[in-house]
Amino acid sequence: MKRTDRLDNKYMPINKNVLVVGGAGYIGSHTVLALQETGFNPIIYDNFSSGHRDAVFSDHVVEGELSHSIHLRDTMRKYDVGSVIHFAALIEAGQSVVEPLLFYRNNLASTVSLLEAMQEADVTRLVFSSTAAVYGNQPEIGLLHEGLPIQPTNPYGQTKAAVEAMLRDTAAASNLKAIALRYFNASGADARARAGERHDPETHLIPLILQVAAGQRDQITVFGNDYQTKDGSCIRDYVHVTDLARGHVAALEKLLARDAKIGGFTPINLGTGRGYSVREVIETAKRVTNRHISVVDGQRRLGDPSMLVSDPSRAHIELNWRAEHSSLENIITDAWNFMQRGLS
């Protein structure tokens, strides 16, 4: 008869206590919901600088700074944490150009504190929220895959790439196992409108378009109409936030599986493999909302490539994950329903 109290990991139960750093943010809050639905026990750690207190979906919440290594370590020990999902970061690429040190302190230096706390608390599994921005402006080669060179073009992307390098080096020198999820354009909202996208200021395309539909903004600007695409506007890979949340759970399950055959550090794209142009997004929003959306043309933004679309095949193979909710109409419908809830 098998015993579950043996020191042999073959028989030890899997620790389902997960520290979700940045768990009150956009993708973090959806991931907390997904963790609970799959039997995990999420503990949120957030400083609420950009997260929302009404987006806390766990009974276990610790308010604190990522730079406070001792507080992090004590939190992990108190809740017997077995793994960490790390979302906490500044994300606005434009702001990173103006305030690079802020991004290096918040995104990179604070992650050093997190890794130190994990080592002291003997926590060895980490899912890291990375970004397709690490690829930078690649030649027009089609779908972006994990084997491409890392060449970010702004401090935001540089900090994410630097954290990935730090994870790779730490894993090589210790028993850390980490997966970095490089996702593309996070979008949409929880289908039950429990959580959604609320950045301040808002810079993402779909909520900006919906703000025009809701009468909160006069118009949406299309930056560039002469790209080598079918309608002249940029093409991007939009991934429903619920699919992203599922991807984080799948990555965590991969790391925790007793028979997992995975290296110390693995980067994995989360995307659909299909792109939509800016104008296609606008037209879909018009149909979903049945509202007029005023559009104006603007100049190209410096450094904007014509197409950024993922090759998600590694996620299919390694995580058995596919984007199941990420049709453009579904993304915009859920985002619109969430916005309407806030306006009612």
Rank of each mutant, 00 (worst) to 15 (best):
G264W: 06
L256I: 04
L256K: 03
I262R: 06
K261D: 15
G264E: 04
T272N: 11
V281C: 01
S277Y: 05
G264M: 01
T284M: 11
P267S: 06
R287I: 09
R274F: 15
G275D: 06
T272Y: 11
G263S: 00
E283V: 07
R287A: 10
T284A: 10
E283Q: 07
G275S: 00
T284D: 08
K261N: 15
V281S: 03
V281H: 00
T266W: 09
R258S: 14
I268V: 10
T284V: 10
A285H: 07
D259V: 11
L270S: 04
A251P: 00
T266Y: 09
S277P: 06
K261E: 15
A260K: 08
L270R: 05
V278F: 01
G263H: 02
G273S: 13
A251L: 00
L270A: 00
F265I: 00
K254E: 08
I282F: 05
E283P: 07
R287S: 10
R258Y: 15
F265L: 05
G264A: 03
L252S: 02
T266G: 09
I282T: 02
L255K: 06
F265C: 01
Y276L: 13
K286V: 10
N269V: 13
L255C: 03
T284G: 09
L252M: 02
T266V: 12
G264Q: 02
T284Y: 09
A260H: 09
E253W: 04
R287D: 10
K261S: 15
L255Y: 03
I268F: 08
N269H: 14
E253K: 09
N269D: 14
E283T: 07
G273M: 13
G271R: 10
G275T: 01
Y276N: 13
Y276K: 12
D259H: 14
N269R: 12
A285S: 08
L252H: 05
K261I: 14
G271I: 12
Y276R: 13
R287E: 10
F265Y: 07
L256G: 00
V281F: 01
I282K: 03
T284R: 11
I268T: 08
E253I: 01
K261R: 15
L270Q: 00
F265N: 05
A251Q: 05
L252I: 00
V278K: 04
P267D: 06
E253P: 05
F265R: 03
A285G: 09
R274S: 15
L255Q: 03
E283G: 04
R258I: 14
L252Q: 04
E280A: 00
K286Y: 07
A260G: 08
I282L: 02
T272P: 11
A257P: 09
T266I: 10
E283R: 08
K254P: 06
D259S: 14
V278S: 01
A257T: 09
E253R: 09
K286G: 08
A285Y: 06
Y276D: 12
A251R: 05
G275P: 05
F265A: 05
I268P: 02
A257H: 13
N269A: 14
L256S: 02
N269W: 12
